[in-house]
Design a protein around this nucleic acid. Sequence first.
DNA 1: CTTATTGAGTACTAGAACAGTCCTAAATAC
DNA 2: GTATTTAGGACTGTTCTAGTACTCAATAAG
Lengths: 156, 156
Amino acid sequence: MIILSKLADYGVIVATQLAAEPERQTNAATLAEQTRLPRATVAKLLKALAHGGLVTASRGAAGGYRLARPAAAISIAEVVAAIDGAIGVTQCSIHGPDCTRTDFCSTKPHWKRINDAVGTALAGMTLAEMTPAALFAQWMKLPPKSGPKDGQGAVQ
Amino acid sequence: MIILSKLADYGVIVATQLAAEPERQTNAATLAEQTRLPRATVAKLLKALAHGGLVTASRGAAGGYRLARPAAAISIAEVVAAIDGAIGVTQCSIHGPDCTRTDFCSTKPHWKRINDAVGTALAGMTLAEMTPAALFAQWMKLPPKSGPKDGQGAVQ
DNA sequence: CTTATTGAGTACTAGAACAGTCCTAAATAC
DNA sequence: GTATTTAGGACTGTTCTAGTACTCAATAAG
């Protein structure tokens, strides 16, 4: 089973790309090239991110997108929610008490615990931590098994 | 977005039902009645659980299912994995390095952290904790806002 | 041994969700 | 005015999910 949809995954990648150079305004076509994702798909993702208030858009010639807030203030949970909707472990976690089994379902109250754990995990990581720069910093401190001598560790 | 599929959710419900009376052997039809789930679906779930080694089956007349291990030794993660397959945050978390973006994808290494958090949350809860008995015990210690005077709290 | 019961395994179908594309309108720079 | 770029839908093909049905194998009871 996969937790994130492909689009949510892509959304994080696109947002991370924006976070890599926050001062610049980048248009959808350029982001598509940078991330090697289909142009139309990237455009769709950016619309969703803009709708969620995570990026700001400028229309017209020389327009484009940039992060609405500092990358360190945008959590992965927000990015995912902007694309996939609210995060819930089960159907009943989202829809509330309209489950026909509510009355005798003993599992329901427990999902909240798991739900919170997942939410915390996604909310506890920011876009800033996803950038290559952050990855590099981490790699300097905690070199992989193969050691820092081969540059591959930083990518893999 | 919903993390668990309906079937995985149902799987936990069915397994919890088995955990409620571990000494008895119950057949698929009875479990379907107890959980109010479609009989054919319950049968399908039980097959998956049996395949995953979580329940043992006895064929033939007076056959049925029971937990293969004590409920306290079966984690929700195992139940979910038996039905939905291995848990991964993204496609690449499962498929490994065959992603075409591996070389320049800076987000990939970070998913592991989130992946582990989700896995830990699901692995940290057992079937025993999901049973009504466990719920009741918890409710005795931590009564809900409405207080223990109305018996409803234990079900909701 | 025969028969009824029950799980095992597989195949199948309808429906929903997902991923991706395309088109038209609105805004902006030159 | 014209080119560029996002906004907002609509649309489509594919994949996945949920649910059902059917046949085979195993077991208990008479």
